[in-house]
Protein backbone atom coordinates (compact mmCIF):
# COMPACT_ATOMS: atom_id res chain seq x y z
CA UNK A 1 0.00 0.00 0.00
CA UNK A 2 2.77 2.43 0.97
CA UNK A 3 4.68 1.55 -2.20
CA UNK A 4 1.59 2.22 -4.26
CA UNK A 5 1.14 5.61 -2.64
CA UNK A 6 4.76 6.52 -3.35
CA UNK A 7 4.46 5.35 -6.95
CA UNK A 8 1.34 7.44 -7.32
CA UNK A 9 3.12 10.49 -5.91
CA UNK A 10 6.06 9.88 -8.25
CA UNK A 11 3.72 9.67 -11.24
CA UNK A 12 1.98 12.88 -10.16
CA UNK A 13 5.34 14.68 -9.92
CA UNK A 14 6.36 13.54 -13.42
CA UNK A 15 2.98 14.51 -14.82
CA UNK A 16 3.19 17.98 -13.20
CA UNK A 17 6.73 18.53 -14.49
CA UNK A 18 5.75 17.56 -18.04
CA UNK A 19 2.70 19.80 -17.98
CA UNK A 20 4.53 22.81 -16.53
CA UNK A 21 7.17 22.52 -19.24
CA UNK A 22 4.50 22.09 -21.90
CA UNK A 23 2.44 25.00 -20.54
CA UNK A 24 5.36 27.41 -20.49
CA UNK A 25 6.47 26.35 -23.96
CA UNK A 26 2.91 26.81 -25.24
CA UNK A 27 2.91 30.27 -23.68
CA UNK A 28 6.14 31.07 -25.51
CA UNK A 29 4.88 29.73 -28.83
CA UNK A 30 1.62 31.66 -28.49
CA UNK A 31 3.49 34.86 -27.67
CA UNK A 32 5.45 34.34 -30.87
CA UNK A 33 2.32 33.70 -32.92
CA UNK A 34 0.79 36.82 -31.45
CA UNK A 35 3.94 38.72 -32.39
CA UNK A 36 3.68 37.47 -35.98
CA UNK A 37 0.11 38.74 -36.13
CA UNK A 38 1.40 42.15 -35.08
CA UNK A 39 4.16 41.99 -37.71
CA UNK A 40 7.02 41.31 -35.28
CA UNK A 41 9.31 38.35 -34.83
CA UNK A 42 8.77 38.16 -31.11
CA UNK A 43 10.76 36.70 -28.24
CA UNK A 44 12.22 33.19 -28.48
CA UNK A 45 9.84 30.41 -27.45
CA UNK A 46 11.95 29.57 -24.41
CA UNK A 47 11.67 33.11 -23.05
CA UNK A 48 9.21 32.12 -20.25
CA UNK A 49 11.77 29.65 -18.85
CA UNK A 50 14.48 32.32 -18.86
CA UNK A 51 12.19 34.82 -17.15
CA UNK A 52 11.30 32.33 -14.42
CA UNK A 53 14.91 31.33 -13.90
CA UNK A 54 15.98 34.96 -13.70
CA UNK A 55 13.24 35.89 -11.23
CA UNK A 56 14.03 32.85 -9.13
CA UNK A 57 17.61 34.03 -8.80
CA UNK A 58 16.99 37.64 -7.90
CA UNK A 59 19.02 38.44 -4.82
CA UNK A 60 16.38 40.25 -2.80
CA UNK A 61 12.62 40.07 -2.46
CA UNK A 62 10.45 42.36 -0.40
CA UNK A 63 7.35 41.23 1.40
CA UNK A 64 4.39 43.11 2.80
CA UNK A 65 3.27 40.57 5.37
CA UNK A 66 1.91 37.09 5.91
CA UNK A 67 -0.94 37.19 3.41
CA UNK A 68 1.44 38.59 0.82
CA UNK A 69 3.54 35.46 1.23
CA UNK A 70 0.53 33.21 1.04
CA UNK A 71 -1.02 34.83 -2.06
CA UNK A 72 1.27 33.17 -4.64
CA UNK A 73 1.17 29.93 -2.64
CA UNK A 74 -2.65 29.85 -2.77
CA UNK A 75 -2.50 30.66 -6.45
CA UNK A 76 -0.06 27.82 -7.06
CA UNK A 77 -2.15 25.48 -4.90
CA UNK A 78 -5.14 26.43 -7.05
CA UNK A 79 -3.23 25.49 -10.20
CA UNK A 80 -1.94 22.25 -8.70
CA UNK A 81 -5.35 21.29 -7.33
CA UNK A 82 -7.04 21.95 -10.64
CA UNK A 83 -4.53 19.83 -12.50
CA UNK A 84 -4.20 17.00 -10.00
CA UNK A 85 -7.90 16.12 -10.00
CA UNK A 86 -8.22 15.96 -13.78
CA UNK A 87 -7.36 12.74 -15.62
CA UNK A 88 -4.95 14.20 -18.18
CA UNK A 89 -4.70 11.22 -20.51
CA UNK A 90 -7.60 8.77 -20.72
CA UNK A 91 -6.55 5.24 -19.78
CA UNK A 92 -2.99 6.21 -18.84
CA UNK A 93 -1.70 5.33 -15.36
CA UNK A 94 1.12 7.86 -15.48
CA UNK A 95 -1.13 10.81 -16.33
CA UNK A 96 -4.24 9.71 -14.46
CA UNK A 97 -3.34 11.97 -11.51
CA UNK A 98 -5.81 11.65 -8.62
CA UNK A 99 -8.89 11.66 -10.80
CA UNK A 100 -10.44 8.84 -8.76
CA UNK A 101 -10.62 11.12 -5.74
CA UNK A 102 -12.53 14.07 -7.11
CA UNK A 103 -15.14 15.00 -9.66
CA UNK A 104 -15.87 17.97 -11.82
CA UNK A 105 -17.28 20.14 -9.06
CA UNK A 106 -14.08 19.83 -7.06
CA UNK A 107 -12.12 20.94 -10.12
CA UNK A 108 -14.46 23.89 -10.64
CA UNK A 109 -13.90 24.90 -7.05
CA UNK A 110 -10.14 24.74 -7.48
CA UNK A 111 -10.25 26.94 -10.59
CA UNK A 112 -11.65 29.77 -8.46
CA UNK A 113 -9.76 29.01 -5.27
CA UNK A 114 -6.47 30.35 -6.60
CA UNK A 115 -8.01 33.64 -7.66
CA UNK A 116 -9.44 34.27 -4.22
CA UNK A 117 -6.12 33.51 -2.50
CA UNK A 118 -4.34 35.80 -4.92
CA UNK A 119 -6.89 38.53 -4.23
CA UNK A 120 -6.07 38.45 -0.52
CA UNK A 121 -2.32 38.41 -1.14
CA UNK A 122 -2.31 41.18 -3.72
CA UNK A 123 -4.64 43.19 -1.50
CA UNK A 124 -2.04 43.24 1.24
CA UNK A 125 0.51 44.58 -1.24
CA UNK A 126 -1.43 47.80 -1.00
CA UNK A 127 -0.84 48.96 -4.54
CA UNK A 128 -3.91 50.79 -5.89
CA UNK A 129 -3.61 49.09 -9.29
CA UNK A 130 -3.69 45.68 -7.62
CA UNK A 131 -6.87 46.67 -5.83
CA UNK A 132 -8.55 47.84 -9.03
CA UNK A 133 -7.45 44.72 -10.87
CA UNK A 134 -8.73 42.43 -8.12
CA UNK A 135 -12.12 44.13 -8.09
CA UNK A 136 -12.32 43.67 -11.86
CA UNK A 137 -10.95 40.14 -11.75
CA UNK A 138 -13.44 38.93 -9.15
CA UNK A 139 -16.33 40.65 -10.93
CA UNK A 140 -15.41 39.08 -14.25
CA UNK A 141 -14.80 35.73 -12.56
CA UNK A 142 -18.28 35.61 -11.06
CA UNK A 143 -19.69 36.61 -14.45
CA UNK A 144 -18.01 33.92 -16.57
CA UNK A 145 -18.65 31.33 -13.90
CA UNK A 146 -22.35 31.44 -14.81
CA UNK A 147 -22.12 30.22 -18.44
CA UNK A 148 -19.35 27.79 -17.48
CA UNK A 149 -21.39 26.27 -14.66
CA UNK A 150 -24.45 26.06 -16.92
CA UNK A 151 -22.42 24.26 -19.60
CA UNK A 152 -21.06 21.84 -17.02
CA UNK A 153 -24.54 21.16 -15.63
CA UNK A 154 -25.73 20.54 -19.17
CA UNK A 155 -23.13 17.84 -19.82
CA UNK A 156 -23.65 16.37 -16.36
CA UNK A 157 -27.33 15.98 -17.31
CA UNK A 158 -26.30 14.61 -20.71
CA UNK A 159 -23.91 11.93 -19.42
CA UNK A 160 -25.60 11.44 -16.05
CA UNK A 161 -22.30 11.47 -14.14
CA UNK A 162 -20.00 13.85 -12.24
CA UNK A 163 -16.84 11.88 -12.92
CA UNK A 164 -14.56 13.40 -15.57
CA UNK A 165 -13.17 9.97 -16.45
CA UNK A 166 -16.67 8.68 -17.21
CA UNK A 167 -17.48 11.78 -19.25
CA UNK A 168 -14.36 11.15 -21.33
CA UNK A 169 -15.20 7.44 -21.61
CA UNK A 170 -18.67 8.30 -22.95
CA UNK A 171 -17.08 10.37 -25.74
CA UNK A 172 -14.83 7.63 -27.07
CA UNK A 173 -15.47 5.90 -30.40
CA UNK A 174 -15.16 8.56 -33.06
CA UNK A 175 -15.24 12.28 -33.50
CA UNK A 176 -19.05 12.45 -33.65
CA UNK A 177 -19.26 11.21 -30.07
CA UNK A 178 -17.54 14.32 -28.76
CA UNK A 179 -19.63 16.70 -26.66
CA UNK A 180 -18.75 19.32 -29.25
CA UNK A 181 -21.09 17.53 -31.68
CA UNK A 182 -23.57 15.92 -29.31
CA UNK A 183 -24.07 19.09 -27.26
CA UNK A 184 -22.84 22.06 -29.34
CA UNK A 185 -24.68 24.72 -27.33
CA UNK A 186 -22.91 23.82 -24.08
CA UNK A 187 -19.60 23.84 -25.97
CA UNK A 188 -20.23 27.35 -27.27
CA UNK A 189 -21.22 28.67 -23.84
CA UNK A 190 -18.16 27.09 -22.22
CA UNK A 191 -15.82 28.28 -24.95
CA UNK A 192 -16.88 31.88 -24.36
CA UNK A 193 -16.32 31.32 -20.64
CA UNK A 194 -12.86 29.96 -21.46
CA UNK A 195 -12.02 33.22 -23.22
CA UNK A 196 -12.78 35.02 -19.97
CA UNK A 197 -10.87 32.44 -17.94
CA UNK A 198 -7.76 32.77 -20.10
CA UNK A 199 -8.17 36.54 -20.06
CA UNK A 200 -7.95 36.83 -23.81
CA UNK A 201 -9.32 39.88 -25.55
CA UNK A 202 -12.07 41.03 -25.43
CA UNK A 203 -12.01 40.01 -21.77
CA UNK A 204 -8.50 41.07 -20.74
CA UNK A 205 -9.50 44.09 -18.69
CA UNK A 206 -8.13 42.43 -15.54
CA UNK A 207 -4.51 42.61 -16.65
CA UNK A 208 -5.04 45.48 -19.13
CA UNK A 209 -1.39 46.24 -19.77
CA UNK A 210 -1.73 49.84 -20.93
CA UNK A 211 -4.16 50.81 -18.25
CA UNK A 212 -3.39 49.24 -14.88
CA UNK A 213 0.14 48.01 -15.50
CA UNK A 214 -0.15 44.27 -15.00
CA UNK A 215 -3.03 43.80 -12.63
CA UNK A 216 -2.94 41.85 -9.37
CA UNK A 217 0.77 40.85 -9.32
CA UNK A 218 1.96 44.48 -9.53
CA UNK A 219 3.68 44.32 -6.14
CA UNK A 220 5.09 40.79 -6.34
CA UNK A 221 8.85 40.75 -6.94
CA UNK A 222 11.46 38.06 -7.58
CA UNK A 223 10.66 34.60 -6.28
CA UNK A 224 6.99 35.38 -5.69
CA UNK A 225 6.69 36.32 -9.32
CA UNK A 226 8.51 33.23 -10.53
CA UNK A 227 6.02 31.13 -8.57
CA UNK A 228 3.13 32.97 -10.19
CA UNK A 229 4.69 32.50 -13.62
CA UNK A 230 5.17 28.78 -13.07
CA UNK A 231 1.56 28.56 -12.03
CA UNK A 232 0.54 30.41 -15.18
CA UNK A 233 1.97 27.54 -17.24
CA UNK A 234 0.42 24.79 -15.16
CA UNK A 235 -2.95 26.45 -14.68
CA UNK A 236 -3.24 27.19 -18.38
CA UNK A 237 -2.66 23.54 -19.25
CA UNK A 238 -5.04 22.38 -16.51
CA UNK A 239 -7.86 24.52 -17.89
CA UNK A 240 -7.19 23.42 -21.44
CA UNK A 241 -7.12 19.75 -20.44
CA UNK A 242 -10.38 20.16 -18.54
CA UNK A 243 -12.00 21.63 -21.64
CA UNK A 244 -10.51 18.96 -23.84
CA UNK A 245 -11.89 16.27 -21.53
CA UNK A 246 -15.35 17.78 -21.24
CA UNK A 247 -15.97 18.88 -24.81
CA UNK A 248 -13.38 17.56 -27.24
CA UNK A 249 -13.26 13.86 -26.50
CA UNK A 250 -10.28 13.72 -24.16
CA UNK A 251 -6.94 12.28 -25.20
CA UNK A 252 -5.77 8.68 -25.40
CA UNK A 253 -2.09 9.56 -25.58
CA UNK A 254 -0.02 12.48 -24.40
CA UNK A 255 0.68 13.54 -28.02
CA UNK A 256 -3.02 13.83 -28.78
CA UNK A 257 -3.32 15.84 -25.58
CA UNK A 258 -0.63 18.25 -26.75
CA UNK A 259 -2.25 18.58 -30.17
CA UNK A 260 -5.78 19.13 -28.92
CA UNK A 261 -4.91 21.59 -26.15
CA UNK A 262 -2.70 23.50 -28.56
CA UNK A 263 -5.53 23.84 -31.05
CA UNK A 264 -7.99 24.91 -28.35
CA UNK A 265 -5.59 27.60 -27.19
CA UNK A 266 -4.84 28.64 -30.76
CA UNK A 267 -8.57 29.16 -31.36
CA UNK A 268 -8.60 31.22 -28.19
CA UNK A 269 -5.66 33.28 -29.40
CA UNK A 270 -7.24 33.97 -32.80
CA UNK A 271 -10.20 35.53 -31.06
CA UNK A 272 -7.84 37.29 -28.67
CA UNK A 273 -5.86 39.06 -31.39
CA UNK A 274 -8.95 39.98 -33.38
CA UNK A 275 -10.97 41.93 -30.87
CA UNK A 276 -10.50 45.09 -28.85
CA UNK A 277 -11.08 45.09 -25.12
CA UNK A 278 -14.41 45.24 -23.32
CA UNK A 279 -14.77 47.47 -20.32
CA UNK A 280 -15.56 45.54 -17.18
CA UNK A 281 -19.28 46.36 -17.10
CA UNK A 282 -19.60 45.47 -20.79
CA UNK A 283 -17.82 42.16 -20.16
CA UNK A 284 -20.13 41.28 -17.27
CA UNK A 285 -23.23 42.24 -19.26
CA UNK A 286 -21.99 40.13 -22.18
CA UNK A 287 -21.32 37.05 -20.03
CA UNK A 288 -24.68 37.29 -18.32
CA UNK A 289 -26.52 37.70 -21.60
CA UNK A 290 -25.69 35.52 -24.63
CA UNK A 291 -23.56 32.68 -23.18
CA UNK A 292 -25.91 32.38 -20.22
CA UNK A 293 -28.96 32.07 -22.47
CA UNK A 294 -27.14 29.53 -24.65
CA UNK A 295 -26.19 27.58 -21.51
CA UNK A 296 -29.77 27.51 -20.22
CA UNK A 297 -31.05 26.30 -23.60
CA UNK A 298 -28.35 23.60 -23.57
CA UNK A 299 -29.57 22.35 -20.18
CA UNK A 300 -33.22 22.34 -21.28
CA UNK A 301 -32.40 20.44 -24.46
CA UNK A 302 -30.42 17.82 -22.58
CA UNK A 303 -33.09 17.47 -19.89
CA UNK A 304 -35.79 16.89 -22.53
CA UNK A 305 -33.84 14.05 -24.20
Amino acid sequence: MTTQIFIKIGYACISIAVMVAYGLLTGGVMARIRARVYGRYGAPVWQPFLDIFKNLNKRTAISHGMMFYLGPIFRFAGGLGTYLFIPAVFGSVLFANFSGAGDIFLVMYFIFFGQLGMALGAGEGGHPYSGIAIARGLAQMSAFEVPFALAVISIVVQYDTFSITEIVAAQQGGILHWTMFTNPLATIAAFIALLGMNMQSPFDIVIAPQEIPIGPPTEFPSQFLSMLQTNRGLFLVAKLILFMNLFYGGATSVWILFLKTFIIYLANLFIGVSFPRYRIEQAIKFFLKYPTIIGIIAIILMAMK
Binding site: G42, P44, L50, N55, I62, P217, T218, E219
Partner: peptide, 17 residues
Protein backbone atom coordinates in the same frame (compact mmCIF):
# COMPACT_ATOMS: atom_id res chain seq x y z
CA UNK B 1 11.03 44.69 -32.12
CA UNK B 2 13.28 44.59 -29.07
CA UNK B 3 11.44 41.50 -27.82
CA UNK B 4 13.70 39.49 -30.13
CA UNK B 5 16.59 40.13 -27.75
CA UNK B 6 14.61 39.32 -24.63
CA UNK B 7 14.05 43.00 -23.87
CA UNK B 8 10.59 43.78 -22.55
CA UNK B 9 8.95 46.69 -20.81
CA UNK B 10 7.69 46.01 -17.32
CA UNK B 11 5.47 48.65 -15.82
CA UNK B 12 6.30 48.08 -12.17
CA UNK B 13 9.64 48.72 -10.43
CA UNK B 14 9.20 45.66 -8.23
CA UNK B 15 9.65 43.31 -11.16
CA UNK B 16 11.87 45.19 -13.56
CA UNK B 17 15.63 44.90 -13.56
Amino acid sequence: DAYRYGIAGRPTPRQSG
